[in-house]
């Protein structure tokens, strides 16, 4: 009995040492759709200063119940993820659907084209028209509210 236990333990240790073959994922397999996704995700806004747009984007992501992961003013990058997916999809740490933040979240870039024109690209995963519309609508509303103050 004890010898069997030892053999099992040894077998488990050996199994842990054997390397698993790496499965390659081709992240560029959807390259044909990149241009269409980029077009859907990108909007140009006029009469909004670059730092002001950054605050608008953060406000909108929070309104969508995303959790901010990274924000860099110099690079104009803001990334956020759904609070239900900070750990693992389908894991025990599942908090349920929160707001309209997409499961994998996304990375938003703000680029200054000139003094009062900025380009905003919000790349969420999965790519969904509804998510983009929600983001754009909330962003427009945030800009209008700020302009009305």
């Amino acid at each position: 009995m004890r010898i069997s236990c030892c053999i099992c333990l040894f077998a488990l240790l050996l199994a842990g040492c054997v390397s698993q073959p790496q499965q390659g994922v081709d992240y560029f397999s959807g390259q044909a759709g990149f241009a269409a996704a980029r077009e859907l995700e990108t909007r140009v806004y006029e009469d909004v200063a670059y730092p002001v747009m950054l605050t608008h984007v953060i406000d909108v992501l929070l309104d969508m119940d995303c959790a901010l992961m990274e924000a860099n003013k110099e690079l104009g990058v803001i990334s956020a993820a759904s609070t239900r997916n900070l750990y693992e999809p389908g894991s025990l740490l599942f908090f349920g659907q929160h707001g309209s933040c997409p499961p994998h979240g996304g990375t938003v870039t703000v680029t200054q084209l000139d003094d009062f024109t900025v380009e905003v690209r919000a790349a969420f995963l999965p790519v969904q028209v509804q998510t983009q519309e929600t983001f754009t609508t909330l962003l427009m509303r945030s800009i209008e509210l700020k302009a009305g103050e």
């Binding site: 390259q31 995700e41 992961m69 990274e70 690079l75 990334s79 990375t107 690209r121 790349a123």
Partner: peptide, 15 residues
């Protein structure tokens, strides 16, 4: 950054 966005990678750290 544009390529990273194309790939739908999530930016987690920046400098």
């Amino acid at each position: 950054l544009s390529v990273i966005q194309d790939l739908k990678f999530l930016v987690t750290e920046t400098e």
